[in-house]
Design a protein around this nucleic acid. Sequence first.
DNA 1: CCGGGTACTCACATAAATGTCAGTGTGGAG
DNA 2: CTCCACACTGACATTTATGTGAGTACCCGG
Lengths: 123, 123
Amino acid sequence: MSETKKRTFTCGLDAAIAVMGGKWKGLVLFALQDGALRFGELRRAIPGISERVLILQLREMESTGLLHREVYHQVPPKVEYSLTPFGHSLNAAMGPLGEWGEQHLDRIEAIAWDQVSGSGTDR
Amino acid sequence: MSETKKRTFTCGLDAAIAVMGGKWKGLVLFALQDGALRFGELRRAIPGISERVLILQLREMESTGLLHREVYHQVPPKVEYSLTPFGHSLNAAMGPLGEWGEQHLDRIEAIAWDQVSGSGTDR
DNA sequence: CCGGGTACTCACATAAATGTCAGTGTGGAG
DNA sequence: CTCCACACTGACATTTATGTGAGTACCCGG
């Protein structure tokens, strides 16, 4: 199970989800859209995320080419994260989705998330 | 832990992801955009998905109001799934994302997914 | 020296998502 | 009678995602 599993995507949407999937990557993109941020700033900008998870997301997005990591060899250490052009283009593509979310925020918040996927006896 | 956990979303994007998150919901939306499909058709339209998971996704999307389920009491049983207006609006909002994915498909497929999030010693 | 801030890493633990496989009940085809 | 397609359901196993809490190395202010 360690071969180069050539992921074939059904459609562009599939591919896009593979890149920005997960609970946090969208928020990271969003937080960085106005410019570079340091690790600590990023953490504070995304309430609820844990350090470890943020780092993991950052690493993933770095290796998918979505963002750039700039290390300053100073004391105290300083690391800045910024979007690459690729990241910016993804962010732009997610704009409409964000607007949709805001427009329907009330409805989405009103959803009984407790019952979702819990209608049967599954969990 | 059975209270109505009022999920507060950071931004619209967050909310949208809560609704369409996961590996398959986007594909389901996509498959249904041109009209209603039966369960079996849907399964065949989405290669790689297992029956159980498809049902789970369908149930979730039903309870979030994204799609409508119409049962015909016939033999053999017939069930049709179709998008609600809400579902259609989400689909529209995901359009740009899908286009982005298609535009950058080569780049996305070229990503070494094996190494992503495996750079450290995590797994 | 102590504690604070910085950007991490490591070793776990848990939750959530996804997958596999075997049923269930029906009526028609063979 | 047997088997098939249909739309599921249920009991699992596995994988992936997320979370917790500690520790690291550095320097600076007190």
